[in-house]
Amino acid sequence: MALIGYARVSTMGQSLEAQLEALQRYGVDKIFQEKYSGAEQNGMSKRPELNKALEYLREGDTLVVYRIDRLARSTFDLHKIVRDFQERGIGLVFIKENIDFSNSSGKFMFTMLGAIAEFERDLIKERTADGRERAKAKGTHMGRKGKDEKDVQKALKLLRERQENGLSVNEISKMTGVPRSTIYAKNKETLG
């Protein structure tokens, strides 16, 4: 049963010193530390030291983090991490917020965070649906912006001349910037 620390700052210019001192005062056995922005990375997979810490943790261990935002980017993200830890029998402590997910008040906090995460997800879905409806009502095109018609026509011309130019659809797509799916779809429309 080990106490494992995790410290993170978002930019190379920031210092880990305050977090490391707090983790050491807490009595952690080992500390994983890194300088990565959670926002600019695509989820936890881009935080190598966090991944190492998560792999290192065993049943009965506790991950100790200085502040919630050093571990999770949202309540939804935090809820997933805590649920995974509960399934694996791993504890989680946040020093600054004084939250320990292994005791009853921590479990209550987890339940509250779960409700907030679900509420947050529902709000995002509602806002997205509302925005989509408003855009449709205005006649705004949804999805990615289509390629310029002249690029599509150039791609179709190159496609028709494939026997002479020896280009593959992939090569035509790269040359014109028109996606393969658009080339195929527009070619099908012109054929009939």
Rank of each mutant, 00 (worst) to 15 (best):
G38C: 03
L158K: 05
Q41Y: 07
Q19E: 10
Y56W: 08
T11K: 14
S105P: 07
K138Q: 14
A115H: 10
K35N: 06
K157M: 06
G91T: 00
T190V: 07
L159I: 03
N170Y: 11
T140N: 12
K174G: 09
Q33F: 02
R88K: 15
L191A: 14
Y6I: 04
K188I: 03
F119N: 11
R8L: 06
G143D: 02
G89Q: 05
K125P: 02
Y26N: 07
A155I: 08
E87H: 13
N165G: 03
K188W: 00
K145F: 05
K157N: 04
E55A: 14
E149C: 03
K46S: 11
G131H: 10
I183G: 05
I99C: 07
M109H: 10
K145M: 07
E189P: 02
Q24E: 13
L20Y: 05
A53G: 00
I90A: 09
V93N: 07
G43T: 09
D84Q: 10
N170Q: 10
A117R: 11
G13T: 12
Y184L: 08
K125D: 07
E21A: 15
K30C: 02
E149T: 05
L123N: 12
G139A: 03
K80T: 10
R25K: 14
D151N: 14
E171M: 01
S105R: 14
E164L: 01
G38K: 09
G114H: 14
G139T: 13
I68Y: 11
R127W: 10
I68A: 08
N98H: 11
R132N: 08
R127Q: 09
S10P: 15
R144E: 00
E17N: 12
Q153W: 04
K96D: 15
R83Y: 13
R144H: 11
I95E: 05
S181V: 14
E97H: 10
E49C: 01
E133G: 03
